[in-house]
Amino acid sequence: MLPRRYLTTLALFALGAIAVPAHAATIQIVMENLVVSPAEASAKVGDTVEWVNKDILAHTATAKNGDFDVTIAPKQTIKSVLTKAGTVDYYCRFHPNMKAVLKIAP
């Protein structure tokens, strides 16, 4: 006979009451030749954004709503985890013509 605690855990798992953590994704956003690519990306809260700067100039990923402001040195990569859902317009403070959108689902 199985212990009661084991049976309770098994029953909760079978009913879906125990959450199984989803695997977070890594979204790569590249800044090269003064262009952000992709210009529109989708992600989920908990995902990691890998900001890749392939240029010889520093760039930023600055959210217009203040959610994030990341500085990426030339030829460097920075990672950040998304913590808030929403559609975020962002740009480079040093090169304001570099614009993009990040759609973050809950």
Rank of each mutant, 00 (worst) to 15 (best):
M1A: 13
M1I: 11
R4N: 04
Y6D: 08
Y6M: 04
L7Q: 09
L10N: 03
L10R: 11
A11P: 00
L12V: 00
L12N: 15
F13C: 05
A14P: 00
A14C: 04
A14T: 06
L15R: 09
L15H: 04
L15C: 10
L15S: 12
G16D: 04
G16W: 06
I18G: 03
I18E: 01
I18F: 13
I18T: 10
I18V: 14
A19E: 13
A19D: 10
A19Y: 10
V20Q: 05
P21Y: 03
P21M: 05
A22V: 14
A24K: 01
A24Y: 01
A25K: 10
I27W: 09
I27C: 05
V30C: 02
M31R: 09
M31F: 10
N33T: 07
N33G: 12
N33S: 15
L34S: 14
L34V: 02
V35R: 14
V36Y: 09
V36C: 11
S37Q: 14
S37L: 08
P38R: 04
A39D: 12
A39T: 15
E40N: 07
E40Q: 14
E40G: 00
E40R: 13
A41I: 11
A41C: 05
A41V: 11
A43T: 05
T48W: 06
T48H: 03
T48A: 07
V49C: 11
V49A: 09
V49G: 08
W51V: 13
W51Q: 01
N53Y: 08
N53K: 04
K54E: 14
D55C: 07
D55Q: 04
D55F: 03
D55Y: 03
I56K: 10
A58D: 05
A58K: 06
A58M: 04
A58Q: 07
T60H: 13
T60N: 10
T60S: 15
A61M: 13
T62W: 10
T62N: 14
A63K: 08
K64C: 04
N65R: 07
G66N: 12
G66S: 13
G66H: 08
G66Y: 07
G66Q: 08
F68T: 06
V70D: 02
V70G: 05
T71E: 13
I72E: 02
I72L: 03
A73N: 10
A73I: 00
A73Q: 14
K75L: 15
Q76M: 10
I78T: 12
I78A: 04
S80Y: 06
V81K: 15
V81Y: 00
T83C: 00
K84A: 15
A85M: 07
A85Y: 06
G86M: 07
T87V: 15
T87W: 00
D89H: 14
D89E: 15
Y90Q: 02
Y90K: 02
Y91S: 11
C92N: 08
C92K: 03
R93K: 15
F94L: 14
H95L: 14
P96W: 09
N97Y: 08
K99I: 13
L102V: 06
K103T: 09
K103Y: 01
A105N: 12
P106A: 10
P106D: 12
